[in-house]
Amino acid sequence: MYDLIIIGGGPAGLTAAVYAARKLIKTLLISQDLGGQVNETLRIENYMGYQFVEGPELIEKFNKQVTQYPLEQKVGSKVSSVSRLDCHFEVKTESGETFQSKAVILATGKRSRSLNVPGEAEYRGKGVSYCAICDAPVFTGMKVAVIGGGNSALEASYDLIKMAEHVYIVSLTPLTGDPITINRIKDARNLTILLEHQVEKIEGDKFVEAVHIKNIKTGERKRLEVAGIFVEIGLVPNSEPVKEIAALNQWGEVKVSTTCETGVPGLFAAGDVTDTPEKQIVIAAGEGAKAALQADRYIRNLGG
C-alpha cells in the first residue's frame, strides 16, 4: 500500500511529486507521458526563472528535480479508474494493473478535443492533424481546412495561409478569437471563412481527400476538397478516471476547494483537470504543490 498515488506527469503532477518526496511519504507517480501539454509548445515566456524556455527543455528540468528523490514512477501507463474502498483507494490501469493507496492526487490535465466524426481516427497523421505548428509546412501548396473559431484555430490559419494553396476555416460559431488575430488573417486572398458549419465526415484514400460539412442554419451540405484538416476545437479535461466518485462541473472539470479537496476524503485534484480558473504552467505547478501538502496532512491525520 502506498501513502499516495499521483496520477499525471505534467507540471501539476511533477510538482506534487517533489513536495510528496520531501515529506518522505511513500509515493507512486503514474502517467501516460512526462510533461503533458508542456510538450506541445516551443515558446514559454511566462514561467518564472526563465525569460524564455522551450517546453521539452522545461520538462527535462522538472523531471531532473523529481528523479533526485527516491520515488517510484510508472510512465507509459494510463489510469482507467480510481475507486474508494473502505479507507483507501484502488487505482486501476488500462493494462490491468491495480495499485492501492491512502490518498490520491488527480493531475491528469487536458487533451485536445476531437471531432468525433467518421474518418477522423482513420486519417490521423494522414491529413488529420492536431498540431498546426508541427505539421503545417507538410501541406505547403495544398488545400487545407482548419476546424474551430478560437485563438488556436486562428493562429493555425495565420501560419497556414502563408504556405497552403487555400485555407478554409470551418467554425460552428462566429469567430471567438481575439480581434487582433482575426484582423491579421481576414483579408488573405486564399482564405474562406465558413461560419455556422459543422463537420460531418472526413474521406480519402491513402490520405485525406475531402471533408464534408453542413450549414447548421440552412442544412445545406458541402464537400471541400482538402488534403489537410487541422482540428483546433479546444481542450477537454481528463477527468474520466474519477467521474464515478467526484463531482464535475458542466465542462467535465473536477470541482475542487481552495485546498484542492474534491469532496471525497483523501482524493485531491490539481491543475488543468480542475475547475480552478486559468490554465497555466505556473498555476498548475502551484496547485500541485498545494495538493501534495494537503495530502500529506490528510495521511498523517489518518495515523498508522
Partner: peptide, 29 residues
C-alpha cells in the same frame, strides 16, 4: 522534422542525451 515542432525537439533531445548520431532533415524547407 520541422523547426517549430515540439515533439521533434523531444526526439532529438532523446537521441542527443543517448549520444546517438542522426541526420536531421527539415521538411519545412
Amino acid at each position: 522534422s520541422t523547426p517549430t515542432c515540439p515533439w521533434c525537439k523531444k526526439v532529438k533531445m532523446f537521441l542527443d542525451t543517448n549520444k546517438v548520431a542522426y541526420k536531421d532533415l527539415n521538411v519545412a524547407s
